[in-house]
Design a protein around this nucleic acid. Structure first.
Length: 907
RNA sequence: GGACGUAUAGCUCAGUUGGUUAGAGCACCACGUUGACAUCGUGGGGGUCACUGGUUCGAGUCCAGUUACGUCCACCA
């Protein structure tokens, strides 16, 4: 399974490793959940991607975050389930099929529903797996045995059950109302599927003649074509300019229809002329006004956006073509006053990408207030669910408060057909607004139910419409686990623990789930909702299909490896919910930030390789826990750091601090472990070093490396699994993914020791700096004198003598209480004076320059701290510890200044 | 019109409840291939913390306001 250690290449190759472990984990059902598993349940349901989708950076980001959390919790011993699946995406699939049909010069209406659905399922079987297979390439630790699709039999049962119950509870109703109509998909859409776009349009001013010939009323509109359906002109009742006209009529141009002048508070007297044309059948505000004033509702439009028989000579024209022609006609008839440029927002259909048309039609609605109020109650009285970051709570809450009834019927075929059967025999074989209907779980029940009411001699027809895709998505957290049946999975894993998703989906999905779950399960479907930000492109622009600026995660995976991409996405996450930016060069497909992460994987690879080459073929288990009795200072130090970092990482991950944890691990692995510890112990690894010392180094290296692999596994699952298998010479099928996450052993955390090493490292850096300044070749060993008046410091230096010699290339190290007075390169670290005697080599000017530079810095500090300490307010009001800290710092700075001044004087 | 987010090094971003001289990665400069790694190592340069005012002994951090960019919601024809 794994390569033998001596043959490991010096460059990590993710391409084979990624695929190898993805296959292995899946084939061995490593992530299959078991309700009987010990530990507290930890469950996440995937935000189901559209079956029509292909993996974009947003998916990669979201699923990387989820996988990180899930793998972490699994390794913490939780009874973990991450449930995958896809969404049937009613409108998107319809659009694809319509395109296919269009290519054959057909439309949906040319084939029957059964054929259409057959094609749809065929498409789903062929192409629906794309996104799922791409998800696999991220290394997601989902339970594929529980994969769900929103149109699976079970989930469809859940949908029908939910619909029927809501209907029986009078929370679903059918009625004739104004809805958002998408002429592209020729279906109603819900309010949130409408996106308002700012466009540069025009404001057309027309004048309508007052019927009695006493003059004109000037109205303005952004939609001239709707004038054909005008049934009134409105003014504000308090507008004295027009009060004498209220009750009179105007004659609608072109149509020559006499329509009333009405007064309504809705009209803003200060806008334009203060007169508004009213088109009750084509504008939501006018619709309301039409109801208030009993106006007639004249629909002038067909479902495809062309004008109908009520549009007179304009019948058959597309709405935008008609607009031009109507303006032309009004102009030639002398009714056009002026055309102004006007910036305004136009409602566009989210999916259809065309302006939506407010249209009156008969649709099914969910009466939303009772459900929304239930969700609000959970939020206000139980603080459920908890949003991370917290600020999204307000967004979620405000939306629930203002929510209007939800239009759930779609005039499409792909989706869950509405389980309502019309007794069409009562209305001449047609479905009309008056046709009686029954709502039932299936056609057999419907038949029985209808017969009970209308006798046996009846004809039934199921409602042709399907349900809004979000209706089924709203049931996702529990329908996927078997609801409405009561199942072991529901029992164990529901409510789920955390939902990870984007803010753009709070309204579409999160709120629908909380409402549905509150209603049907009496519980919130998840304890917490982690809202992540967007991945922006290299120019900080939102990635979108329309701007064609997406960055393909699979390209980056191929170039740098899955773990590198995952790690990049995670480490960029700062505060939760912040957008992240991804560097990218579109010419070369290179990304600086992913490359940096790739370098990190390579660093880990080589450090591991080096460690393994020095273990004489022994595994961490064979070597045993680092032997307390023989630990040397550097071993104790790295163990202290390791446990410190384990603690920090655990704490961070427990509160969604994924980015912070990632950075912590990066610094520990690369900095503490590779740059310092491995370098510190290299001399002890040689075959000829003292056996006890060598053995404890092997133990410590193996132990810490094993720990690093565990800590990093949720972030970079593939490389860590690969190395861990090699390190532990696994032959029995064990996987790192199921090992325990390191838990900090506080007894091994030693802050004093870490401080001592800070001093040693500081001295080493100072010597290296002096060497560089003096131009000493890296290969040349030098003599160094370390002077400190403090015996404690001299003890630390003496204890770490070997480390200083090894890492600063010092052949002859002297540690003394007093300093010699010869000309030497000098620096300070804390109150330790570092002297490098370079007989005959010392460049006095270079030396003076360096000393003066150092001194300048220190004097600036002395001035700053001294100033503070001379301020009586600071000394009397600041906490004692802070004042003392300042005094200590000042004393040290003064000491450093003294040393440097003495050195300068000696030149 | 309302709400929210962001502004710190050339770039991407950290900076906990206010408390030493504001940090990291990338990029840049110098040196370097000693047996893990040049996808590397060592050292270095680089910041008026958007602006204005306030609170405080002390502000990148708290408060008020301003500006810029971004996002969401609601929209007057």
């Amino acid at each position: 399974m794994t390569a033998s250690i001596p043959t490991l290449p010096s460059q990590y190759d993710p391409s084979t490793t990624d695929a190898k472990w993805q296959t292995y984990w899946e084939e061995n059902s490593v992530f299959k959940a078991d309700p009987e598993h010990e530990g507290d349940p930890y469950c996440v349901v995937i935000p189901p991607p559209n079956v029509t989708g292909s993996l974009h950076m947003g998916h990669a980001f979201e699923n990387t975050l989820i996988d990180l959390l899930v793998r972490y919790q699994r390794m913490r011993g939780r009874n973990t389930l991450w449930l995958p699946g896809t969404d049937h995406a009613s409108i998107a699939v319809s659009a694809i099929l319509d395109r296919e049909l269009h290519a054959q010069n057909k439309t949906r209406r040319d084939i029957d529903r059964q054929d259409y659905l057959t094609r749809a399922w065929e498409w789903k079987e062929e192409s629906g797996g794309t996104i799922v297979n791409q998800l696999r390439k991220l290394g997601v630790s989902v339970d594929w045995s529980r994969e769900r699709f929103t149109m699976d039999e079970g989930l469809s049962t859940a949908v029908v059950t939910a619909f029927k119950r809501l209907y029986d509870e009078k929370l679903i109703y059918r009625g004739n109302y104004m809805v958002n109509w998408c002429p592209a998909s020729q279906s109603a859409v819900s309010d949130i599927e409408v996106e308002n776009k700012e466009v540069d349009g025009h404001l057309w001013h027309f004048r309508y003649p007052i019927t009695d010939g006493s003059g004109y009323m000037e109205v303005a509109t952004t939609r001239p074509e709707t004038m054909l359906g005008d049934t009134a002109v409105a003014v504000n009742p308090a507008d004295e300019r027009y009060t004498h006209l209220v009750g009179k009529t105007v004659t609608l141009p072109i149509m020559n229809r006499e329509i009333p002048i009405i007064a309504d508070d809705y009209v803003d007297a200060t806008f334009g002329t203060g007169c508004v044309k009213i088109t009750p059948a084509h504008d939501p505000n006018d619709f309301e006004m039409g109801k208030r004033h009993n106006l007639s509702f004249i629909n002038i439009m067909n479902k495809d956006g062309s004008l109908n028989e009520n549009a007179g000579e304009f019948q058959g024209q597309d709405r935008f073509e008609a607009r031009k022609n109507i303006v032309k006609r009004l102009d030639s008839d002398g009714f056009l006053v002026k055309i102004e440029d006007y910036k305004h927002s136009v409602p566009y259909s989210d999916r259809g990408k065309v302006p939506v048309e407010p249209l009156i039609s008969t649709q099914w609605f969910v009466k939303i207030r009772p459900m929304a109020d239930r969700a609000l109650d959970f939020l206000d009285h139980h603080h459920e669910p908890v949003f991370v970051p917290e600020r999204w709570t307000k967004v979620y809450r405000d939306w629930l408060v203002n929510l209007k009834d939800w239009c759930i019927s779609r005039q499409l075929w792909w989706g869950h057909q509405i389980p309502a059967w019309y007794v069409i025999s009562e209305t001449d074989g047609e479905i009309t607004d008056k046709t009686p209907f029954v709502v039932a779980a299936n056609d057999v029940d419907a038949q029985a139910k209808a017969e009970a009411q209308f006798g046996t001699d009846i004809q039934l027809l199921q409602d042709p419409d399907v349900l809004d895709t979000w209706f089924s998505s709203g049931l996702w957290p529990f329908s996927t686990m078997g609801w409405p049946e009561s199942t072991k999975d529901l029992d164990t894993y529901y409510p789920t623990t955390t939902l990870v998703t984007g803010f753009d989906i709070i309204f579409f999905w999160v709120a629908r789930m909380t409402m549905m779950a509150g209603h049907f399960t009496g519980k919130m479907p998840f304890q917490s909702v982690y809202i992540h930000g967007l991945v922006r492109d290299e120019n900080n622009k939102k990635m979108s299909k329309s701007s064609n600026n997406g960055i393909d995660p699979l390209i980056l995976i191929r170039k740098y490896g899955t773990d590198a991409l995952r790690y990049t996405l995670v480490r960029e996450v700062a505060g939760a919910g912040q957008d992240i930016r991804l560097e990218y060069d579109r010419k070369t497909d290179e990304s600086g930030s992913v490359e940096a992460s790739r370098n990190f994987t390579n660093k880990l690879w080589n450090a591991s390789r080096f460690v393994m080459m020095n273990l004489d073929g022994q595994t961490p288990e064979q070597l045993g826990h680092p032997d307390e009795a023989h630990l040397e200072l550097s071993d104790r130090w790295i163990l202290s750091r390791f446990h410190q970092v384990s603690r920090l990482v655990g704490t961070q991950l427990d509160q969604f601090g994924m980015g912070e944890a990632a950075k912590e691990l990066y610094e520990f692995t690369w900095g503490d472990f590779c740059d310092w510890y491995i370098e510190l112990v290299k001399s002890r690894m040689h075959q000829d070093s003292a056996p006890e010392s060598r053995r404890v180094v092997q133990q410590t290296l193996a132990y810490v490396l094993d720990g690093i692999l565990r800590l990093l596994h949720p972030f970079m699952p593939h490389i860590t699994e690969e190395v861990w298998q090699t390190l532990n010479q696994i032959t029995d099928g064990r996987v790192l993914a199921l090992q325990r996450y390191p838990i900090a052993d506080d007894a091994l955390i030693n802050p004093d020791l870490e401080k001592q090493f800070e001093l040693l490292f500081g001295v080493i850096r100072t010597i290296r700096n002096l060497r560089a300044e003096a131009g000493v070749k890296p290969s040349m060993a030098i003599a160094t004198i370390l002077q400190s008046e403090q015996s404690a410091e001299r003890t630390i230096l003496t204890d770490g003598q070997v480390y200083i010699q090894d890492l600063a290339k010092v052949a002859d190290l002297t540690i003394s209480e007093t300093a010699p007075t010869e000309k030497m390169f000098a620096g300070v670290c804390g109150t330790v004076q570092v002297l490098v005697p370079l007989a005959g080599v010392v460049d006095v000017d270079a030396l003076r320059g360096k000393l003066e530079k150092d001194l300048g810095k220190i004097e600036a500090e002395i001035k700053s701290i001294g100033g503070r300490l001379n301020n009586p307010g600071f000394v009397t009001k600041a906490p004692e510890a802070v004042v003392q800290g300042a005094r200590d710092t000042l004393a040290e700075a003064e000491k450093q200044a003294q040393i440097l001044q003495d050195r300068l004087a000696q030149l």
